[in-house]
């Protein structure tokens, strides 16, 4: 599903923040990307989500070599990836419903066709009664659930979450991880970046650890 070969990344003329990163994400896998703050987790996720270009190395996404793929195909690849951003990035002037519906609108869906799905999904994350609320009127945890609903509404093949439990207490964090595990069971490949290794307990998962821009440890937890 995702393949990195000797990928290096630097911002502008700065130092390399990722070095010789090589790994493969199998379809249906559940992966934790761990590492201290500043280790390069967000940068690695940006490469997977086609938000940044690597400085060197080879990235293959859904079988497409990103170095040679035509520009016109990139939007279609990005649509197959759902992203939960660390800072949510909800649109403040849109209701929870419209925020969640955004990926479906981008894909050309009509409100009549997706309204039910969006309602259902928002109920599933416990926001069935806050459909019309604008993000600024929601609590941090509620905003996060809207962000998650938006990331999964279009049934992406790959779900990426950057520090999704950064802003919530341990209990809600554990519930979020169960939610991701549930999505994974339904077939979605999941990658979660976190600096909190306690999250990985009780989850069948693989850990990729970044230290100073290098992938140092790969292990499977069962």
């Amino acid at each position: 599903m995702v393949r990195f070969e000797n990928v290096g990344m630097r911002y502008g003329a700065g130092p390399e923040v990722l070095r010789d990163v090589t790994f493969v994400l199998e379809a249906g896998s559940f992966t934790f990307l761990t590492g201290l703050s500043g280790a390069g987790k967000t940068t690695l996720l940006k490469l997977i989500t086609v938000a940044e270009r690597p400085s060197r190395g080879l990235i293959t996404l859904f079988g497409h070599d990103l170095a040679t793929v035509r520009r016109k195909t990139l939007p279609a690849l990005r649509r197959r990836v759902g992203v939960v951003f660390q800072d949510f990035r909800l649109l403040d002037h849109l209701s929870a419903f419209d925020n969640v519906a955004l990926p479906l609108r981008i894909a050309g869906g009509q409100p009549a066709d997706y309204a039910l799905d969006v309602d259902e999904l928002l109920s599933w994350v416990g926001l069935g009664d806050r459909l019309g609320a604008k993000p600024p009127t929601l609590s941090g945890g509620e905003q996060q659930r809207v962000a998650i609903a938006r990331a999964v509404v279009a049934k992406p093949d790959l779900l990426i979450a950057d520090e999704p439990t950064g802003n919530v207490d341990a209990e809600i964090g554990a519930r979020l991880i169960r939610l991701f595990a549930e999505l994974n069971r339904l077939g979605t490949t999941v990658v979660i970046a976190t600096h909190d290794r306690s999250l990985m307990e009780n989850t069948r998962s693989r850990e990729m650890r970044l230290v100073d821009g290098r992938l140092v440890e790969l292990r499977v937890r069962t």
Binding site: T49, L74, P75, L77, R78, R80, V83, P103
Partner: peptide, 13 residues
């Protein structure tokens, strides 16, 4: 800018 970047990231043409 942020909204445009978001739409772009979501795969908007």
């Amino acid at each position: 800018h942020e909204m445009v970047a978001l739409l772009h990231q979501m795969g908007a043409q």
